[in-house]
Write a protein that binds this DNA or RNA. Sequence first.
DNA 1: GGATTTGATACCTGAAAGGTATAATTATGG
DNA 2: CCATAATTATACCTTTCAGGTATCAAATCC
Lengths: 310, 310
Amino acid sequence: MELRQLRYFLAVARERNFSRAAEILHIAQPPLSRQIQQLEDELGVLLIDRSSRPLDLTEAGRFFYEQAGQIIARTEHMREQTRKIGLSKRERYVIGCVGSTLYGGMPDLVRRMRKRWPDIDIEIREMMSTEQVTALKERRIDLGFGRVRFNDRKVERLTLREERLVVAFPKGHPKSLSTEPIALAELEGEPLIVYPSAPRPSFADEILNMLTEQGISPANVEEVREIQTALGIVAAGVSLCVIPAASQRQRPDDVCYRTIKDENATSPIIMSFRRDDAKGRIEEIKQIIREMYADNPPWLQLSNVQLDGA
Amino acid sequence: MELRQLRYFLAVARERNFSRAAEILHIAQPPLSRQIQQLEDELGVLLIDRSSRPLDLTEAGRFFYEQAGQIIARTEHMREQTRKIGLSKRERYVIGCVGSTLYGGMPDLVRRMRKRWPDIDIEIREMMSTEQVTALKERRIDLGFGRVRFNDRKVERLTLREERLVVAFPKGHPKSLSTEPIALAELEGEPLIVYPSAPRPSFADEILNMLTEQGISPANVEEVREIQTALGIVAAGVSLCVIPAASQRQRPDDVCYRTIKDENATSPIIMSFRRDDAKGRIEEIKQIIREMYADNPPWLQLSNVQLDGA
DNA sequence: GGATTTGATACCTGAAAGGTATAATTATGG
DNA sequence: CCATAATTATACCTTTCAGGTATCAAATCC
């Protein structure tokens, strides 16, 4: 599969006519037909229903049209952005973080960094905890915020705080009637859903390890790729799910939450960076974080979500 | 630019060595070098710093690496999904909706639809209001949920409810100290940020029209692509922004909200569908929505966000 | 049902991807 | 600092495949 074929297919899908599409693409009609055929051959699926005129897309063709359009748009965006970065002499500073750290203190930290270094382009990129380690070593990011503890000779890590975990219940679940903190042991025998399913080790493993250590075994454990899906399944009344307190806001309506009582049922927020960071801003960033602690002591805490069962 | 070039670049970036990358790709080293050169020529930017060994990526190269990897992953995902859809005999029902309708009643509606028709694959796709009209006509979606009124001979629309609008203030803004409803007229002379900037007409135009009709002119109006950015700028203390009540949850911490007092300062939630829908499920969907109104009268209202200034 | 539009097929041409040989460059060890 | 090893760039040839032309085969439309 090549981008050319996607571009060709988009033209045909838009025009619903091979000949006109070929004109627009400034090629003859037969090569266009052939490229589409090759594409269909590779996929093993018909994209265009040629038995009617004007042409109609098949179900698969309609899906492919959506996706192909987005991919083409994305490559064009990438081309422009790459050009811009290559020509600009501004320094870039890329921060990788897992979704659940994007709330609370992170935006404020970025704001402060932008204010301190107005000449630097600071970017945020969503990225799993384990990906951050390799991304740091390959210098694709300069700073990481994650939740999984790891050891790597070249990467230093700093735990910013421990965040309480909460259990998500479907509305109407018998154990969701109380809003009091809940004991971890009460998960015994309950169906559980964990995330993300890849790459390992992940937050899913942290939760499963915690349960194993305590000798608690849920009824059955399902893995899903992302928290949205996990909470969707919870809302549908199928399972329970353990999430960091900050993630409660993801879905406040149809899911109930109870903080876990156990003192050590927490998930860390870990900042990581290269030991040999050449940009030399780590010390200043630590200083900014100290300032933030001073301004607003429970850093990364959320103002209007009840935390720590207090 | 072709996918082949992206695949080649990824191999070189991973190996940091042309010869080894060429081996992995099962081609000779010179053609690989040339493809990368052509890519760099087209971009007008160096991606690889060849003056050091092992090779190093340039700043632009690191960005390109991230993006290219995601694009390749996406094309592969598209290939598999297209294949699956083409081979499966299950009916697909695609719903297009703007982000702000994804909260509240929408997930529940989809849940009820899945329950009613377990043999149908129901998908949700995020999509601007105006895109929904063409997507419906081209049968890329079967149902749309949007916020912008439009007229089209082939598409029928149904207003489900009118939702109150709220003003977003940066924390500490003098007008954010009260939580009382605010008059639209108080936006006079304030810097305003609207979204989305494309495609028009959009929610941005609805807001600007409303202000013009009332003879209110903000100090200066900036347009951004999406609500995240808009609220980010608000939080940074630069401007105010008008959003639908449901979108408050997007950023509950560092932004303050006040409902707009004016009775007609509302934004509709509009369901739209093809007049000649062949799947014949529209009437049943309307029935489901009536059931939902019955179960939970203020449909699409949010349980824990203060609405309607009540 | 015949004319017209439009997509598929067969076959040819030329551009561009890939290969081989070798020069140029960068690193490394004495 | 120079010689050597490793690795990338250049020059040139081969082969593959995208694109073009001519024509046939459907499908639609009066």
